[in-house]
């Protein structure tokens, strides 16, 4: 059992949870994730480790309720507990000294981006952060990111905060200006967003790293369910990733495989009580 110490709501249905998991807190590096199995008869849900405090023995997760299982996790109050958490899994981010980098987060991807951006800044990179969401309430962690970013630029679809439009518009402006053009881009968010960023940077030859989120089970390379295509190779995202070169990723295949259980998910959702169903965000994929 893993005790939940803190559970805050950051944005509609986006929670920050602090959980007691001393072994993971000690071993974890930026870019790695855990698998949470909230209850005996639950699913195994991969979630990025947003932050960790090895002294206190805690990890921080940022979770968006998009389905029955993530809802189950975020509705566990402080003082409650989650049955199983395994990790840290996946390869840590390769933190290099790039000079100027852009970190692009879309929706909840911003939370996943946070530990990575922080580590890049700590390694001496000049980090410009671009965060996007559909409207102002969905823009998360702007202050936290500002603590180490040279600049935090915001884009919302309805223009209620920052520039109106997509993160790619903002990124394009950065690239077009030789004084701000990044040497590397880290993009984390919905698959269409990561694809759009990769397409944008490709002609410029700017190294672009994305973090993939296929469906997973064990997270240890045992089942192959998380396979993704990178260049000519099939990779298991849980052990070979989750971060890959965005210019080589087959995003179409990833999106397609993510839709494998859409019918079952819809059925489970339909069976949820109405008041719970409303709590779930309709995610753009």
């Amino acid at each position: 059992m893993f005790k939940v110490l803190q559970n805050d709501t950051l944005a509609p249905n986006v929670h920050r949870m602090v959980i007691h998991a001393p072994r993971i807190a000690k071993a974890r590096k930026p870019g790695q994730f855990v698998i949470v199995h909230p209850e005996a008869d639950g699913e195994r849900i991969p979630l990025t480790i947003g932050d960790a405090d090895p002294q206190a023995g805690t990890i921080t997760l940022f979770i968006q309720a998009v389905g029955a299982s993530t809802l189950k996790i975020v509705t566990t109050p402080a003082g409650g507990s989650l049955r199983d958490i395994a990790g840290p899994l996946g390869k840590p981010t390769e933190i290099e000294k790039w000079g100027r980098v852009a970190c692009v987060g879309g929706g909840l991807g911003t939370a996943v981006l946070y530990p990575l951006a922080k580590a890049l800044a700590e390694a001496g990179n000049e980090v410009t952060t671009i965060i996007g969401g559909r409207a102002k309430p969905y823009i998360i962690l702007a202050d936290e990111l500002a603590a180490f970013s040279t600049d935090v630029l915001v884009a919302t679809e309805d223009g209620s905060l920052g520039q109106q439009g997509f993160v790619t518009n903002v990124l394009k402006d950065l690239i077009d200006n030789p004084d701000t053009r990044p040497n590397a881009v880290f993009a984390i968010g919905p698959v269409p967003m990561m694809r759009a960023v990769a397409e944008l940077t490709r002609p410029y030859g700017i190294k672009t790293i994305v973090s993939l989120n296929p469906i997973m089970i064990d997270g240890t390379g045992m089942c192959g369910g998380c396979r993704v295509k990178v260049g000519d190779e099939t990779k298991f995202a849980c052990v070979d990733g989750p971060e890959f070169d965005g210019h080589l990723v087959d995003f179409g295949l990833l999106m397609d495989r993510l839709s494998m259980y859409r019918d079952t998910e819809a059925k489970i959702m339909a069976e949820l009580p109405e008041e719970l169903r409303d709590k779930i965000i309709k995610v753009k994929r």
């Binding site: 072994r23 993971i24 071993a27 199983d84 958490i85 395994a86 990790g87 840290p88 899994l89 997270g219 240890t220």
Partner: peptide
């Protein structure tokens, strides 16, 4: 359970 040797320890 939940200890992946090589990762957790």
């Amino acid at each position: 359970c939940n200890v992946v040797v090589g990762k957790t320890v």
